[in-house]
Design a binder for these strands. Sequence first.
DNA 1: TGAGTTGTTCGATTTTATTCGAACAATGGA
DNA 2: TCCATTGTTCGAATAAAATCGAACAACTCA
Lengths: 101, 101
Amino acid sequence: MRPFKHPAPDQFVLERVLYALSDPVRLEVVQRLAQVAEASCGELDGGRPKSSMSHHFRVLRDAGLVCTYGVGTSHMNSLRREEMDSRFPGLLTAILGNKGT
Amino acid sequence: MRPFKHPAPDQFVLERVLYALSDPVRLEVVQRLAQVAEASCGELDGGRPKSSMSHHFRVLRDAGLVCTYGVGTSHMNSLRREEMDSRFPGLLTAILGNKGT
DNA sequence: TGAGTTGTTCGATTTTATTCGAACAATGGA
DNA sequence: TCCATTGTTCGAATAAAATCGAACAACTCA
């Protein structure tokens, strides 16, 4: 399985990150990933079509918010919190409404 | 001059705020307003058509980011920083502290 | 190898946003 | 009052995103 392309932190673009998180579906995915550390695509679709979710995951990946890697037949996703924090300190914390870093 | 409608902080919607700031033009306006306290629309257009800017100001207003009031023939805009901070603590600070590279 | 699972990619449709000229409204000054 | 200034609103064209079915690809397991 060919790995997905993930941008490096210095390639993160603020506008792109904000745009990715401005969609309710994607924001929900990120909020859930902030709690579970990692989850498959299937666990994160809200009963939505797989093709739609695949699109949303790609937007999140391209923005640098999410890391996706294949595990067996499924794809696991995790929040790139440290990298996002290093590039945009405090941003994810503010958006996720968390108290810790 | 009829005043514009400005949402109360408890009506701010995170997705809407993020969306408003995901546009380069609007983000630039907010970044400049963070430095000058207030400015007219004309001072903030980058030579762009007034009708386009009027649209962007409306998006920023509706999201709760900006307050607009008439002064003479011009409209003054200011960042609603305290109110945004009260609703989404740390968000504006995080966004304004990172201009992107 | 063949079937079942998971998710991607493609393609088309629908929806939503951006852009900007032109007309309009409000204001202040001569 | 007339005129210049400032910005809004309208309307249409353009551009960009979201949606989702269908076909495809990668993997596991029997």
